[in-house]
């Protein structure tokens, strides 16, 4: 089988771990065209960062060009690693101008995957995330802007969101109240307001046909409201300062998808509900406030809430296979 042979030599030149035979043939069968195409594409200069020292696992901190810090004398902005996820590394850096902070999400090549498959997956995931963000921006959902993307190299530069996560804000609520005794008598009004804002934000997202895929309180930011012009989603009832001031901004669309199906929307809400239950059990009793606000946020929301009942009964997966 000449094709398999050629790919084996290709692997050897890359210095990747050898693949098992059956895995190999499966890939060849399904992705022949892609193999052919990327075969010539791989050894160009633009991708050379992937091809250096063979047999060695790539160091986690090597960023693709132009973010390689080695060849930049007089660099004013520093790039630092702030978070590492399962698939990507998140850096804080600056983009376009030294006064514009940004989050640089880099999906490094995974050495456990076939390099061609790896490239395709990385590219698809970078683009999926970027497209969803741009779509949200166009429709006026509060998300960070995409500033740049390199799908061949696996990076995406996203506007930096100031403020804290909803998770940290809820954890810090007690401290905040001790420091600002003035509004202590508010009871749980501040939390109810927060829940309302979350419900509206998720509703808005679903309304424009986007599913977040990983709604947790860590992926909801409270962006401080800068000018008075913004913040149309804010409930008018609470005017006093609370620990939860700001606009809810959704982040991390790495698992997001474009869909308008009630099932997907309901699962999105279910994931958020479970996240609340496990991260903030003390405020779980207020979660219905999220759903209340969600139900009023757009036309099809009520149907989704009914669907949510079904999802609660059976769990996140519809088919019980896999």
């Amino acid at each position: 089988m000449p094709r398999a042979l050629s790919i084996t030599t290709h692997n050897a030149s890359l210095g990747e771990a050898p693949l098992t035979p059956e895995w190999h043939s499966r890939t060849v069968a399904s992705e022949t065209a892609a193999h052919k195409m990327s075969f010539t594409a791989v050894p160009t200069a633009s991708n050379s960062y992937q091809l250096n020292d063979s047999n060695e696992v790539q160091p986690l901190h090597s960023l693709p060009p132009p973010f390689t810090t080695t060849s930049s004398p007089g660099q004013t902005s520093s790039t630092k690693l702030i978070r590492q996820g399962a698939e990507a590394l998140l850096y804080y850096t600056h983009f376009l101008s030294p006064s514009l902070p940004c989050a640089l999400k880099y999906r490094p090549p995974k050495s456990y995957r076939h390099p061609i498959l790896d490239k395709r997956l990385t590219r698809a995931r970078i683009l999926a995330e970027a497209r969803v963000l741009v779509r949200c921006k166009r429709e006026g959902v509060s998300v960070p802007a995409v500033l740049g993307a390199g799908w061949e190299e696996g990076w995406i530069a996203i506007e930096w969101v100031n403020g804290s996560t909803v998770r940290d804000a809820i954890f810090g609520r007690k401290t905040w109240r001790q420091e600002n005794q003035a509004s202590y008598e508010g009871g749980e009004k501040d939390l109810v307001g927060l829940m309302h804002k979350i419900g509206c934000a998720v509703g808005k997202l679903h309304q424009v046909g986007v599913i977040h895929g990983d709604l947790t309180t860590s992926n909801l930011m409270l962006r401080p409201t800068v000018s008075g012009a913004e913040g149309g989603e804010e409930p008018s009832a609470t005017s006093a300062a609370t620990p939860f001031d700001g606009t809810i901004t959704l982040i991390d669309f790495g698992l997001a998808a474009q869909s308008s199906q009630e099932e997907d929307r309901a699962v999105d809400l279910y994931v958020l509900e479970r996240a609340f239950g496990s991260t903030h059990p003390e405020v779980e009793h207020l979660f219905p406030e999220v759903l209340k606000a969600y139900g009023e946020s757009y036309k099809g929301a009520k149907v989704v809430l009914r669907k949510l009942e079904d999802v609660r009964m059976r769990g996140r997966k519809k088919s019980m296979i896999g």
Binding site: V134, A145, V146, A149, S227, E230
Partner: peptide, 26 residues
């Protein structure tokens, strides 16, 4: 929905600007 908000153009990367940068990047 946010028709009135964010038209001033003063707020950084809100509204059109963020969308345009994303379009160019993609």
């Amino acid at each position: 929905v946010n028709g009135a908000a964010g038209t001033g153009g003063g707020a950084a990367l809100d509204g059109v600007e963020g969308f345009i940068l994303g379009t160019m990047a993609l």
